[in-house]
């Protein structure tokens, strides 16, 4: 057995990792909630954003500054991708959307591979090795920053969805697409805005991940599997579910890594995933499908 301090440290570390999972998952669940489709390009967009953040840093811009440029940029890219590629190509069929996003994901990942090779790249930031002392445990500064940024982003997103007209339109389309169209909401526009918001969240996640992680053309895959789990666990389309699910999975991963070792710790996530899908596919917080 481990000493309580080690277990508590593992839990806190898990929460920090979980916050980034939560951010990636909120983006996925938002898109699912409105478009009713799993976006298989999610991981590839995250990877692309991490490359963008990487090259911004190479050009001398810290990721925490670059985020203010990259988030709007990815919003525009996401908006365009949904409005001009995914939407028209799918002919309104869900199964087509699934395959188009898969095709985009293959395209983006391998275009990055062709352009930059499969090397693993890291960056050095001044705060890369700083720590935050909580008295009984030292926490790496980049991950504390990631945690804080996630909380801010989630709050902003919540305010956007609850307080603005755009947010109202998004929620209306999520609930009842036809009804929303009948009262004059431009559904194609709302789909694209939602997709853009998802991509912007991924850009933010990329900027806070990069200082303590690496970038490589397949790096998004690991996160996207976790995000699928979180989204299913939290209930597809439920933003609070994705937040809580993300933190929970972070802690589970950290603790199972502590008790079972790194490679089998990964297995824990998939077992939870399959059980959640089989036993309660509507998730812990999801509405009935």
């Amino acid at each position: 057995m481990f000493a309580p301090e080690i277990v508590i440290a593992a839990v806190i570390n898990g929460l920090l990792t979980g916050a980034v999972y939560a951010l990636v998952s909120v983006a996925l669940t938002l898109v699912y909630g409105v478009l009713h489709i799993i976006n298989f390009a999610h991981g590839a967009i995250l990877t692309a954003a991490m490359f963008a953040a990487f090259f911004a840093e190479q050009a001398g811009v810290d990721p925490l500054i670059a985020v203010f440029g990259l988030a709007p940029l990815f919003f525009v890219l996401g908006y365009g991708a949904q409005r001009y590629i995914i939407g028209p190509a799918s002919h309104g069929e869900d199964s087509n959307t699934l395959l188009v996003t898969l095709g985009l994901s293959i395209l983006i990942e391998n275009a990055l591979l062709a352009a930059f090779g499969s090397d693993t790249r890291t960056i050095d930031v001044p705060y890369g090795f700083s720590t935050v002392d909580l008295g009984f445990v030292f926490l790496p500064a980049p991950r504390v920053i990631a945690f804080a940024v996630t909380c801010v982003t989630a709050t902003l997103l919540w305010a956007l969805l609850k307080k603005t007209d755009t947010g109202k339109a998004i929620r209306a389309v999520a609930k009842e697409k036809l009804g929303a169209a009948l009262v004059g909401i431009d559904v194609a526009h709302v789909y694209a805005v939602t997709f853009g918001l998802g991509a912007a969240c991924l850009a933010i996640a990329a900027c806070v991940l990069l200082p303590s992680y690496y970038v490589q053309p397949r790096v998004g895959d690991a996160y996207v599997f976790v995000a699928f789990t979180v989204v299913v666990l939290g209930g597809m389309g439920s933003a609070p579910g994705a937040m809580i699910g993300g933190l929970f999975i972070g802690v589970v991963e950290s603790l199972s890594g502590l008790y079972f070792g790194e490679s089998l710790g990964q297995l824990g996530i998939f077992v939870i995933f399959i059980l959640a899908l089989l036993v309660r596919p509507t998730g812990l917080f999801g509405a009935r499908a």
């Binding site: 799918s90 391998n110 275009a111 990055l112 062709a114």
Partner: peptide
């Protein structure tokens, strides 16, 4: 033989075929 270019084309082709 740039790695990835062939698979990237697969991806593009999927989108085009479905569209």
């Amino acid at each position: 033989r740039i790695p990835g270019i062939d698979v990237a084309l697969y991806g593009a082709l999927v989108v085009l075929v479905i569209a």
